[in-house]
Amino acid sequence: MADMIDNVRSAVQDRAELPGMSLMEHLDELRKRLIRAILYLLVGFAIAYIFHDRLVAFIQKPLVDIGLTMTMTHPTDALNLIIKTSVVAGAILSSPFIIYQIWLFISPGMYAHEKKYVWPFMSATVGLFVGGAWFGYRYVLPGAINVLVMGFGKNFTHMITIEDYTGFFLAVILGLGICFELPILLFFLSLFGIVDAGFLVRHIRYAILIIFLITAVICPLPDPVSMCIFASPMLVLYLLGVAVAYFVHPSRRKAKELKAS
Rank of each mutant, 00 (worst) to 15 (best):
residue 80 N to P: 00
residue 57 A to I: 08
residue 33 R to W: 12
residue 59 I to G: 02
residue 73 T to V: 13
residue 18 L to N: 01
residue 81 L to F: 10
residue 72 M to H: 14
residue 70 M to R: 07
residue 15 R to V: 01
residue 61 K to C: 05
residue 54 R to E: 14
residue 82 I to W: 02
residue 47 I to G: 10
residue 80 N to T: 05
residue 83 I to S: 01
residue 15 R to C: 00
residue 89 A to Q: 03
residue 69 T to E: 13
residue 66 I to S: 01
residue 73 T to C: 07
residue 13 Q to W: 01
residue 81 L to W: 09
residue 51 F to H: 06
residue 67 G to A: 02
residue 10 S to T: 09
residue 29 E to T: 15
residue 73 T to E: 07
residue 12 V to W: 04
residue 49 Y to N: 04
residue 64 V to S: 12
residue 84 K to R: 13
residue 90 G to M: 00
residue 92 I to E: 00
residue 25 E to P: 03
residue 31 R to M: 10
residue 35 I to L: 14
residue 59 I to Q: 00
residue 69 T to R: 14
residue 60 Q to Y: 07
residue 43 V to F: 07
residue 38 I to E: 05
residue 79 L to T: 05
residue 26 H to T: 12
residue 17 E to V: 00
residue 19 P to N: 05
residue 80 N to F: 04
residue 71 T to R: 15
residue 89 A to Y: 02
residue 16 A to L: 05
residue 71 T to C: 15
residue 20 G to Y: 04
residue 43 V to C: 06
residue 20 G to C: 06
residue 39 L to Q: 11
residue 79 L to P: 01
residue 25 E to S: 08
residue 62 P to H: 06
residue 47 I to L: 15
residue 26 H to V: 11
residue 67 G to F: 01
residue 69 T to K: 11
residue 92 I to K: 00
residue 62 P to L: 10
residue 17 E to T: 03
residue 68 L to T: 04
residue 39 L to C: 12
residue 21 M to S: 13
residue 22 S to K: 14
residue 63 L to N: 06
residue 76 T to A: 12
residue 86 S to N: 02
residue 36 R to N: 15
residue 86 S to V: 03
residue 35 I to Y: 13
residue 67 G to K: 03
residue 28 D to N: 15
residue 19 P to I: 06
residue 38 I to R: 06
residue 43 V to H: 05
residue 12 V to R: 07
residue 27 L to E: 15
residue 36 R to C: 14
residue 53 D to K: 11
residue 79 L to F: 08
residue 92 I to D: 00
residue 39 L to K: 10
residue 39 L to T: 13
residue 66 I to Q: 01
residue 30 L to Y: 14
residue 40 Y to N: 04
residue 47 I to H: 10
residue 45 F to P: 03
residue 38 I to W: 07
residue 59 I to W: 00
residue 33 R to V: 14
residue 60 Q to D: 12
residue 87 V to I: 11
residue 87 V to P: 09
residue 51 F to E: 09
residue 52 H to G: 02
residue 60 Q to I: 08
residue 75 P to H: 02
residue 60 Q to E: 14
residue 48 A to M: 05
residue 89 A to L: 05
residue 76 T to H: 04
residue 72 M to D: 14
residue 18 L to F: 00
residue 71 T to F: 14
residue 92 I to R: 00
residue 9 R to S: 12
residue 77 D to F: 02
residue 28 D to V: 13
residue 56 V to T: 13
residue 29 E to L: 13
residue 14 D to Q: 09
residue 17 E to N: 02
residue 72 M to V: 15
residue 62 P to W: 06
residue 20 G to N: 08
residue 61 K to V: 10
residue 75 P to R: 03
residue 65 D to A: 11
residue 9 R to K: 14
residue 86 S to K: 01
residue 78 A to H: 06
residue 80 N to K: 06
residue 79 L to S: 04
residue 21 M to C: 04
residue 20 G to W: 04
residue 29 E to F: 11
residue 78 A to Y: 13
residue 19 P to M: 08
residue 11 A to L: 01
residue 30 L to Q: 10
residue 19 P to F: 05
residue 40 Y to W: 13
residue 53 D to W: 06
residue 58 F to Y: 12
residue 92 I to L: 04
residue 15 R to Y: 00
residue 45 F to A: 06
residue 57 A to D: 13
residue 48 A to I: 03
residue 47 I to K: 09
residue 13 Q to T: 06
residue 32 K to R: 15
residue 48 A to C: 08
residue 9 R to V: 11
residue 47 I to R: 09
residue 32 K to C: 15
residue 55 L to I: 09
residue 32 K to N: 15
residue 67 G to Y: 02
residue 33 R to K: 14
residue 54 R to C: 07
residue 35 I to P: 11
